[in-house]
Design a protein around this nucleic acid. Sequence first.
DNA 1: GAGTGGTCTAGACCACATG
DNA 2: ATGTGGTCTAGACCACTCA
Lengths: 237, 237
Amino acid sequence: MVGTPAYRRIYEDLSARIHAGELAPNAQLPGEALLAEQFGVARMTVRQAIGQLADDALVVRRQGVGTFVAGDAAGRRSLNRLTSFTEDMSGAARKVETELLLRAICDPKPDVAAALGLTAGARVVRIRRLRRVAGVPVLLNDSHLPYGLFPSLDREDLIEGSLYRTLETRYDTRLRRADQRIRAVAASRELARLLDIAPRSPLLRSERITLSDRNTAIEFARSWARPDFELSVHLQR
Amino acid sequence: MVGTPAYRRIYEDLSARIHAGELAPNAQLPGEALLAEQFGVARMTVRQAIGQLADDALVVRRQGVGTFVAGDAAGRRSLNRLTSFTEDMSGAARKVETELLLRAICDPKPDVAAALGLTAGARVVRIRRLRRVAGVPVLLNDSHLPYGLFPSLDREDLIEGSLYRTLETRYDTRLRRADQRIRAVAASRELARLLDIAPRSPLLRSERITLSDRNTAIEFARSWARPDFELSVHLQR
DNA sequence: GAGTGGTCTAGACCACATG
DNA sequence: ATGTGGTCTAGACCACTCA
């Protein structure tokens, strides 16, 4: 044990082999007993790793038959995982760019303060970014973070444009989970201009509250995605 | 054991207690050791149940502290669970109605046939329904199912308007998982009329492929939701 | 019948938060 | 120091699929 649990290492290992193509779509994984032997752990530990791969829809389990790489697992990222936009887009050959539109300390609007559970008078760092993929603007992201938790975020550059990587690296803040609400809205003139589409075009709007390890709200983010941007969800049972 | 696994019964039990308000938001659950004793199972079995509640975002676990009912668990359903619209809306006091617009056997378009993995010439049962909540039309659903699997579905009425319940009850088909893709689109004239909104209003469009136990595609469904309809997702790690 | 995943046990030790 | 959840073991038996 080196800090990261065994099941996590196994998950990463298998996940990497799937994304690398070593385990091709529809290929059968080694049996759980064999994997347990190979990794030198108990079968329950292997099952914990494979269970997460199944949650991601990267593999499909069939009782009495085996576990198989999902048919569409090729370029796809894990579903229902809390990942940064940067991570989401990596693996694809497309180039991701981030344009920083705003970085400032603000007094939050009441809805933002409520979402973050801030006390009266607490301020937020607001970071507004436009994400481009292969030169096309696809997503406008407007994040609000408690200034008290990240007191120098307004003066630092983000690591490779990634807010989440910056939080983990510089503030030792491990992201744990997020609740996200999604709806369709019409593009305002400003959004239309930024995303290079016609005003009143349909957009996918998300509102996300991100929580840390310690279960404290770290970020409230609104984002708007171009109509050709798709969001995938995996549902079970 | 009576067919349903112990962890499932524990999951249902706790889930019901949360929805009934017996376990109020932010209340602490009994410790895992105590629950194991109460249910007469090993602690690992209790953990399996609680793990699913955490996936649902119905409870939050905090190491060293305890497990707590989510603050917003009140009227909310489990997130990321494959549930029917009918189930989603139950629990709320609002009345759900279903208007059957179309039920017919059709030759599927190529994209539908591909999504269902049908052989050439195979036909589908198409079921188009408008769902109303408290009298307001909120969702148009257009489902396609392999006619070969459900040969009498075009002649039978749905049980309480619920397709999923009908499949489970009359065809002994247990739904297992679904992959869903979501995007924003502009309302056509027909959709606008059905959903009682202005043409070109932004809509949330979902495309869902539902798979059974045996991992065969059971349904390809497109649905369009009014702009005030929100979709919630829970992301982890 | 052989092999697979699904469920379950009765322990153990660790990491963490709190009093 | 105590109690919590997090990880892990080394088995066991069951349910299922397929040859």
